[in-house]
Design a protein around this nucleic acid. Structure first.
Lengths: 140, 140
DNA sequence: CTTGACCCCGTACCCGACTACGGGGTTACC
DNA sequence: GGTAACCCCGTAGTCGGGTACGGGGTCAAG
């Protein structure tokens, strides 16, 4: 039984929290596949597409470009895609992700120190965030 | 003894890995303070500014806008800034950062599973990244 | 069987974040 | 003391990522 509960573009956009124009834009950019159409030409999305659009938005908030997000969404192994290049690509993305996590953690630590200083009523210097991050330079 | 090793805009840009125009752009946007000038009008940056510019770039890569980065850089406690609002602001940023780390970790796990599947020569479905992330919905 | 909400498409416009340009002064090296 | 490399400023152009518009077809409720 194929799921008969398809979504119009408006329903998809509403469920994913974006505008209708944004969905059509993502389609043009190849971020979401062209869906089947109703006899009158309306796009018919499967519910899973909602998750895809939400993922795009979340990934953007993490500093990925639409091109990078397209690469992430294209990662799959099947008859046509050999394993090795996919794994290599995935490993490259893993590094990128790990790097971001690292930087965010250092930022987190800096902010925590700032809040603590605040509670201890210690005035901070010029720019505590930067001061806290200084010397963290792991790229000689 | 004030540090006499000041940087020209070109030296700052070079050290921070951006273009000269970008530095002037950040200055116009208030992301880096207007530096003192030489008698002939040249900007004279202190070396610490390099870190500031690098921070801006890194934060951008983490999905922060220039406006958000300006807020981060402005977090400080001193005579004029009361403690409470600064701490509140810092806590808000902490939440934002924690959320990003969370999302990145789930992406990391999904990518790791993909690499494993690859090594086990198991073909994946349509879009393993999304499949791996499904059901993770912590926002009802 | 009309009316309002929705969909189609194409094109144009907007915003954030740069990037380039053009005309002129400055510094440093040979 | 020339000349290449750098700095000044203002304005304009670019690019990624949408957003809006306009003219037209479609669908469901009344």
């Amino acid at each position: 039984m194929p799921p008969s509960d398809v979504l119009t573009i408006g329903a998809l956009a509403g469920a994913a929290g974006v505008g209708v124009e944004t969905v059509r834009f993502y389609e043009r950019k190849g971020l979401i596949p062209e869906p089947p159409r109703s006899p009158s030409g309306y796009r018919q999305y499967e519910p899973a597409t909602v998750e895809r659009v939400r993922f795009i938005r979340r990934a953007q908030g993490l500093g990925f470009t639409l091109a990078e997000i397209a690469e992430l969404l294209d990662l799959r192994i099947d008859e046509v895609a050999a394993c090795a290049p996919v794994a290599a690509q995935a490993r490259a993305k893993l590094e990128q992700v790990a790097g971001k996590i690292d930087e965010l953690r250092r930022m987190q630590a800096a902010l925590e120190r700032l809040v603590e200083a605040c509670e201890a009523r210690q005035p901070t210097g010029e720019c505590p965030i930067l001061e806290a991050l200084e010397g963290d330079d792991r790229s000689p």
